[in-house]
């Protein structure tokens, strides 16, 4: 199938990957509102979710334009089914506890900030503009999630144990962010986006520095789950998330909200 992709189709897939990542993660983080460990964290998590929702509007808005079927960002968010989503599996795993949530956030933020850094010099001016705007937000997310991972990892014995578990669980989902396929090859060729595999070195250096400061041990396994960014196989969790997120749009088709 890969060779048959037109330039626009590849670009559309790329934009879905960017927008679905922020959509699904923003949704997960928004689940915390009203339930965080302390008011200051409740407010901070909501800010992160708000940024991610705003970024989704930009990425999926551009995706809809490229798709050229008169759809909106909302149509893409609320009217696709599981197999049409292109987010990495990491962002769809459940929140579980604050430690898991912040670790997932950190592991994603680290990739996200590196990716956006490269996208700022994209040959596609629209993408470069979105990257320029969102990279500032993501720099704040990364600073906060990294500090929290360090604080909890190097906190009490109990918080350390929570954070080690919080690292062990999502670790097999990290590799997917760096797997390349035909869509990525097309993006590299057009000068639109970097090769995901090429970001791994910088990523590993960043997370190793933070996780070491957090006194946490990187799991040895290099096994990686895949299937989210190609849509080949999501986790079971995504369907439940979409059931909630899309409920009104699905139950009352055509209504305006």
């Amino acid at each position: 199938m890969a060779q048959d992709l037109t330039a626009d189709q590849a670009l559309f897939q790329f934009l879905l990957r960017m927008g679905d990542n922020t959509l699904i993660l923003g949704h997960r983080v928004s689940e915390w509102c009203g339930h965080a460990p302390v008011l200051e964290e409740d407010i901070a998590l909501a800010n992160t979710a708000l940024d991610l929702i705003g970024q989704t509007q930009m990425w999926l808005g551009l995706a809809a334009e490229v798709q050229g079927e008169e759809k909106s960002a909302d149509d893409l968010a609320f009217l696709r089914d599981v197999w049409e989503f292109r987010n990495v599996l990491l962002v769809e795993v459940p929140n579980e506890d604050f430690g898991r949530t912040l670790m997932r956030q950190f592991l994603f933020d680290a990739w996200h900030s590196i990716q956006l850094g490269h996208l700022m010099t994209s040959s596609n001016a629209r993408i470069a503009a979105i990257a320029a705007k969102t990279s500032k937000e993501v720099a704040c997310h990364l600073e906060r999630s990294a500090d929290t991972v360090v604080g909890l990892g190097d906190g009490t014995e109990q918080s350390h144990d929570y954070m080690q578990a919080a690292l062990d669980y999502p670790w097999p989902y990290v590799g997917e962010m760096f797997s390349s396929d035909a869509v990525d090859a097309a993006m590299v060729q057009a000068g639109i986006a970097p090769d995901p595999a090429a970001l791994r070195g910088e990523y590993d250096a960043l997370i190793t520095r933070v996780l070491t400061e957090a006194t946490l041990t990187l799991p040895e396994s290099s096994f990686g789950h895949k299937g989210g960014r190609t849509g080949a196989m999501h986790t079971e969790h995504l369907g439940h998330l979409l059931t909630q997120m899309q409920w009104l749009q699905r139950a009352y088709p055509g209504a305006s909200w």
Binding site: E40, I43, A44, N47, C140, E143, R144, D147, G151
Partner: peptide, 10 residues
């Protein structure tokens, strides 16, 4: 440091 970050958010 966290106070500064929280102040930014709050």
């Amino acid at each position: 440091e966290m106070a500064i970050k929280n102040a930014r958010d709050v």
